[in-house]
Design a protein around this nucleic acid. Structure first.
Lengths: 212, 212
DNA sequence: TAGATTGTTAATCGATTAACAATC
DNA sequence: TAGATTGTTAATCGATTAACAATC
């Protein structure tokens, strides 16, 4: 496992491999060659082989890759073989959508707490939303791995400042701003407006659009 | 305007320039050099100058860039000087979050219709959700520029197939799958799970994380 | 004019693709 | 063994950074 210097481009393809392999597995397909995967994913076979070999030799010459084995390997590479404790800060439309999103395995993502401006009960009493005033104390008393930030941009940095020294391992930021946290804590941004604006640019310049 | 071959990397920075320049303008700052912008954005001054010069010479030697002028230029480059008609297909958590999202200028994005499995009224009667059966006919009778796809992945391709020949100009896809549409229609994907999984990878390998 | 900063070309760096020997 | 396909090195391509002449 030469994990020394995996490029961001490779890292962002890992979840895609996971997705395509999961689909293949669900279709009952047991083996796949880099050539076949290439047709499905749109990546070149060469790129697929090189990507995978950053993490080890998962294939078999003359045969290809066993779908389930490769999928399980990628699960471990990404870290999806573990559970994660989550706190959602900001329980507006996006916070609620994330809370209820069925797209990820809910067994693996354990929402420990939900925070907003004040205490209240949401979703017919099923969710106890806590005041943001209690957030720092909560982080001290609970091991929160992932903080999901869905607060307005004015508040995003204030909340981020509360994470210092709390053993939070990552921030998933939906606020339309770039927050600063400890250097060793990764931040993954979902900037909805930027995504929409990129689409609009290509709508006006479709000849420049390159699929995928 | 040499728009011949703008690289995707440059295009994705345009909304970021727009965001930073908007902030600067709101702070009342009138001029900025590429050096100063570099400190704010984290891009190199060289990159900023080169990015902008793909679209024209917006600066003034020895002075820098006028914030408002540059912002307005970028608005036009992206295409944010126009209005867009939007249809939201899928009115679950994410569809609703997009519908109500305040992050983008609602005057520019005109939601013409909302579609889901069946007719009903949502949000205290304020939103008439229409059955997906009426979607194709709706597209024929209305100029929909942007289709926001927030349906389950099994339905995403079916809905995409309805867009053929309907003069839709772009698809903003939240379904965790890659949909196929006409080659000249750009598709911008928001794959939430992939974003979260990328974060998790870096949480397990923080030394590989490169800010931004 | 002198100082500052752009616009632009050239050099570097990194990521993708091609090629092929290794091997199942 | 022969055919297929990987793992890996080398070649290419593209994007970023550096440098500097142009010019405000």
């Amino acid at each position: 496992m030469n994990k020394n210097k995996i490029s961001p481009a490779v890292v962002r393809r890992l979840p895609k491999y996971f997705r395509y392999l999961t689909n293949l597995e669900n279709e009952g397909i047991e083996k796949i060659s880099s050539r076949q995967l290439s047709e499905i994913t749109g990546f070149t076979a060469s790129q697929i082989r090189q990507d995978l070999n950053h993490f080890g030799g998962f294939g078999q010459q003359g045969y290809g890759y066993r779908v389930t084995d490769l999928k399980n390997s990628i699960i471990k590479i990404i870290g999806l073989n573990q559970e994660y404790n989550v706190a959602i800060v900001g329980f507006g439309h996006i916070g609620q959508a994330i809370y209820r999103y069925r797209g990820f395995d809910t067994k693996k993502f354990n929402v420990l707490g939900v925070f907003d401006l004040e205490d209240y009960e949401a979703l017919d009493g099923k969710v106890k939303v806590q005041s943001i005033d209690k957030f720092e104390d909560f982080l001290t008393k609970n091991q929160v791995d992932i903080v999901v930030l869905t607060v307005p941009k004015e508040e995003a940095q204030k909340v981020s400042d509360m994470l210092v020294g709390k053993n939070v391992k990552g921030v998933w930021n939906f606020a339309p701003t770039n927050v600063k946290v400890d250097d060793n804590i990764p931040v993954e941004n979902i900037h909805l407006s930027e995504s929409l604006y990129t689409l609009i640019y290509y709508m006006g310049n479709p000849e420049q659009y390159i699929e995928k």
